[in-house]
Every structure is written in structure tokens, then in C-alpha cells.
Design a protein around this nucleic acid. Structure first.
Lengths: 231, 231
DNA sequence: CCATTGATTGAACGTTCGTACAAATTTCTT
DNA sequence: AAGAAATTTGTACGAACGTTCAATCAATGG
């Protein structure tokens, strides 16, 4: 109805609302932020949220959708390039992990505070499994995730599907927790290391995940840890 | 009336409120749950929360504190035993990871739905870094975490303090994401694997984390050298 | 046995919530 | 310039929020 001519006047109000909502939702969650807080931060009237998005719920979805598409495309195009380059063999595990992790990491490091808020929002939503979050995350990220899981499985041909699944879960958890920015490392190291220095994290994250993935299988002795070093 | 000795009559109402709050907070977060929802689920009057806890904020803290002490004690006693047994050498990495992970995993697998809710609550709070969560988590878990980080450092003597810190962050993220119970694995595997089958997870989690920890250092062929070589 | 105390009830308090809508204003098309 | 459409304003509504409090109930100890 209003698609054609919505590129001029109200577009800035619309995006200002999205920016404010993104930042506030990232810090306090959906229920921790009111429409009045969002519109005040955006410098618009309260009723503008319902005018542009229809409801608070739809605003939440719009915040998700604005940046998720770019993320998925970047991941898939990297995976496409890898599979093309290594075909018919499987791309090496490290490069697959890198293709999955680097897009969100680079977005995070781009300096755009919107991407910083968005990654915090994703981290928070991913660990709060109510209906709203699960539906939104599933819709935005499951198709790409399936492709990567299959690729991980091909790169680890002697792993069962279940083991690949667990490894993917650990990968997601480790990656997301970094984005949550709890600044816990800052406190635990008495300020020696600032988690703001995320530039170096890929250097550590990818080796960690690749080695973990390769080791992610049931230990022969499961119940108790061995007393001595493993052979 | 049936109980032999009840320290006070209202102790059951108090714990029923805690149970209901724990379950609801775990699913919807602090702001997503109202006192009226909690008291209705607990089968008590609305004003009982303020009678027993003083405020909604204090109820949140009480939910945290009820189970956190046990968790910390279990972790520390396992670490004590390990250090005593291996002194003056460092306990092996796998056993340290096990000492950190197993208490919360066993609590999770105990069958008590309260512990299941609580672990989901911890996972959610750990990735939502507002003031309330950070203060609560820091107060409850930082002292024990410092001890484990030091132990990890001793078990990995050729790792810098920063590398150990990153490894610990990845460990926390991977562990917590499992507890969040997003059931993402269920969907992504089309129901082949149910994340409810957490019994086998230690078999995968500990090898994953140990291998990751050992590999958690900047890649040797990294294009950009870090601040300087480790001494 | 009554007095006292803790536990519980039920009803309010003032505030804030998401949403709706008519009127006013701005912007664009013709 | 005129009219239509899009945007913004300001206000109002009913519901739900956290909290308070006097009154009532139940149990215990002296």
C-alpha cells in the first residue's frame, strides 16, 4: 500500500526507531524495554511505533530481520566459495568454521554500534528460549545452519551425526557468549584484559573450535576422568 | 500439621514462591514475569512476595542464591580434592574441566525440575549483561571462577594468561548454551536427536573443551603477530 | 484461656504499559 | 496551486504493573 513512496520522509524515523529499539532490546530484553523508552531515545512520538510497525512484537521482528539477512548471505556465499574451490573434496574444517564465524565477527568489529547491539541481542535471545526468540531465530538462521552442519559432517567423516550436532552446539555457545559482552573477563582478570579487544579473538576461537570439533566424541572411559594424562 | 517439626508455618509458601519464580524467570526473564503470575502459579496471594522477600528484585536474588551456594561448594570441594591428590603437580586439564562442569551437569540431570529451571536461568542471565544479572552472577560465581582459572593456567604452563582467559570464556559459553535448552538441535536434526538426552553430553563436552583449551592460542601462521612472544 | 505472634487475605494505591485515533502538519503528485 | 497521501502530534483508554496496608486467620506459649 505505502511501499512505493516510502523512501523519502518517514524512512529516517523508521530507522531511528529500529536503532533505538535494537540498542535497548540488547541490554534489557523485550520485556525490559517500553515503547515509550524506545520512542524517547529515537526522538519520535510514542504512537510512531504502531504507525510504522503495527505493534511492539512486530518491531522486535523488524529489528531481527534488518541485519539477519545480510549475515546469512555472507555466511552462505563464503561456504559456496569454499565448496566450489575444494570440490569434489570437503573444505577443511578450519575454513568452514571461519566461514561461519567471520561474518558476524567482522560485523561486530566494523565499528558500527548497531552491529554491536545486534550481536548482543542475538546472544541474549539465543539463551532465552521462549516462543518469541525460538521462532525468530529459527526462521532467520536455521536454513544456513543446516548447510554448515552438513559441511561439518563431511569434513569429519568418522564422526556420527550426533557428535557433529553436539560440536555445533558448543561452537554456537562459545561464539555467542563472546558477543554477550558480559565483561566477565575484565573483572576476573582485574582489568588486565579487556574483552573489548575482540580483534584477536578469531586467532583463538577458530583453533579452539577446530580442535574441539575433532575431539568431540565419547571418551572410551566415560564415567570418570583418568588420573594420569591421556595416552 | 503432619510434619514433625516445622521451623515456621510459612516455610512452604516461601519455597513454593521460589519454585514458581524460578521456573517462570527461566523461561521469560525478570521483566517477562509479573508478581501476579508467580503467586498464581505458587497458589498464594499476590502480597506474599513482598511479605517474604520485600520486593520483586529481592525475590530474584533469592532465587539465585538458593542454589548457587551448593554449586560453588561442589566445584570447590572437587578442586580441593584434585589439588590435594596431585600436589605439588597440577591436576590434569581434563579433570579440572570435569570438576568445573560436572556439578552443574549432575544437578541438571538429577531429575529435579527446579535444577532444570535454574540452569536455564543461569544460561539466560549469563548472556544478558544488564546490571542486575552481572552483579548477581559476579557475586555468586567469581570467587570460584578465579580459582579454576588459576588452575587452568597451571595445567597449561605454556599458555599466556590471556589465552587461558579466552579458553575459559569459550568453556563457559559452550556449557551455558547447552543449559539454555533452545532445542535447536532437535529442530536442526528434524527430531533425530533430542537435546533432552543430555546424559551423554559430558562424554562429548569435556573432550571438546580440553582439546580446545590445548589448541587455544593464536595460529602460528597468523598474519598479524600479537603484542609479543610469551616469555 | 487469653494474649501474642506470624501467616494470610483482600482491596486498594499510584504508575506505567501497549495501543488506538482524530486532528494537525508535512510531503508529494498533478 | 490544489488536492491527496503520508507523516506526525497529542491525548486518551483500559489493563496490568509493583507495592502497601488494615483486617483476619491460625497457631503457639505462658
Amino acid at each position: 500500500m505505502s511501499q512505493a513512496r516510502r523512501s523519502s520522509a518517514g524512512e529516517e524515523s523508521r530507522s531511528r526507531i529500529l536503532d533505538a529499539a535494537e540498542a535497548l532490546f540488547a541490554d534489557h530484553g523485550y520485556d525490559g524495554v517500553s515503547i515509550r523508552q524506545i520512542t524517547e531515545a529515537a526522538g519520535v512520538q510514542t504512537s510512531m511505533v504502531n504507525y510504522y510497525f503495527g505493534s511492539k512484537d512486530a518491531l522486535w521482528s523488524a529489528v531481527f530481520e534488518r541485519r539477519s539477512a545480510h549475515l546469512g548471505e555472507s555466511r552462505r556465499s563464503r561456504l559456496d566459495a569454499l565448496e566450489r574451490h575444494h570440490a569434489p573434496a570437503s573444505p577443511p574444517l578450519e575454513s568452514l568454521i571461519d566461514a561461519f564465524v567471520r561474518p558476524i565477527l567482522e560485523a561486530r568489529l566494523s565499528g558500527d554500534p548497531g552491529w554491536q547491539s545486534f550481536t548482543r541481542l542475538i546472544a541474549q535471545a539465543s539463551n532465552t528460549p521462549n516462543v518469541r526468540n525460538v521462532e525468530q531465530l529459527s526462521q532467520q538462521y536455521d536454513p544456513t545452519a543446516r548447510r554448515f552442519i552438513a559441511a561439518f559432517g563431511h569434513a569429519l567423516p568418522d564422526r556420527s551425526e550426533e557428535e557433529v550436532m553436539w560440536g555445533f552446539s558448543f561452537l554456537m555457545g562459545a561464539m555467542l557468549h563472546i558477543f554477550a559482552e558480559t565483561r566477565r573477563v575484565d573483572r576476573l582478570s582485574d582489568g588486565h584484559y579487556r574483552s573489548a579487544s575482540l580483534e584477536r579473538i578469531t586467532d583463538h576461537l577458530t583453533p579452539f573450535l577446530a580442535a574441539g570439533f575433532r575431539a568431540c566424541r565419547a571418551a572410551p572411559d566415560s564415567s570418570r576422568p583418568s588420573e594420569g594424562p591421556a595416552p
